Amino acid sequence: MSLTEGGRYVARNADIIAALVAFNAAQIEAHAATPQGVGWNSANAQTVRFDQVLKVIRRGGADVSLNDVGSGYGALHDYMRATGIAAEYRGFDVTETSMERARALHPQMGSSRFAPMAELSPATYSVASGIFGLRLSFDEARWHAYILDTLDLMDANSREGFSFNMLTAYSDPDRRSGDLYYADPGRYFDLCKRRYARNVALYHDYDLYDFTLVVRKERPARAD
């Protein structure tokens, strides 16, 4: 049986995924289903970032779906419900521990709503919040290749657009951590404009040490 597109992605990035699985399992064990359990320092920072990546959604309805890439314990799903965002939610993660916790917290959704990254499938939109910041011991070139591979996968599975956030290179030098990746906003804005779509928005105005990029595609024409 041949691998799916998502399966090939997982195979290509097995080294990084193994390191992230080990880190995330330890975080969840220590902090349970909380923002700290997925690497955020506060609930407020988590929700601010959710607001930014969800800017990609331009319409709601029964035919609108959203892939949450790096879904953790499903906090984005809960936030979307609490704020009335109408879209079919699908969570994907590389960590089985995270998916098990998400399924336990959302039994009404069915196990298919929280699935491995290898099963990522097309949706109206895709978002990724917080998955590019923790570089661990990987060098910058390898980490950038992983980011690009992830964005390519999101692009291929997003009909109308996708969004993601990254820690910013404009962070104060004395507050940086050696195991984190601080990206040049201009570099990734240019990459998205040249590689994915003409319409790209960069948000760097929400008082956190990161930025968000929203890639908007032309909405497919209806076949009448």
Rank of each mutant, 00 (worst) to 15 (best):
Q46R: 03
V38N: 00
L66D: 00
Y89D: 04
T34D: 03
T47E: 15
A43M: 04
A75N: 06
R58M: 09
V38A: 10
V38L: 12
I17R: 06
N24W: 12
Q46A: 07
V94L: 03
R90C: 10
K55F: 11
G61I: 09
G84N: 08
G39P: 09
D51T: 13
G6W: 01
G7L: 06
L20F: 03
A33E: 09
V94K: 02
G7W: 04
R59W: 06
S2D: 14
A11E: 09
A19Q: 12
R49L: 07
L20Q: 15
A43G: 06
A11L: 07
T34P: 02
G72V: 10
I85Q: 03
A30K: 14
F50G: 04
V10Q: 00
G39H: 00
W40A: 00
S2F: 11
G61P: 11
H31Q: 12
D93W: 05
F92W: 08
A86V: 14
E5C: 08
R8S: 08
R59T: 13
Y73T: 01
G37E: 05
A32P: 06
V48C: 13
A30F: 07
L76H: 03
D68K: 11
Q46V: 05
A62H: 12
S65A: 13
T34R: 09
G74D: 01
S65P: 12
R12C: 08
A87W: 05
R59L: 03
L3M: 12
T47R: 15
H77F: 02
I16S: 06
R12H: 10
V38T: 12
W40R: 09
F23M: 15
V56R: 00
L76T: 09
R8Q: 10
W40D: 02
N67Q: 07
A82F: 02
T4G: 02
R81N: 09
H31C: 11
T47L: 13
R90V: 08
Y9M: 05
Q36A: 15
W40G: 08
N41G: 11
A45L: 11
W40M: 04
L66G: 09
A45F: 07
R12Y: 07
A87I: 04
N44G: 11
H31P: 10
S65V: 12
A87N: 06
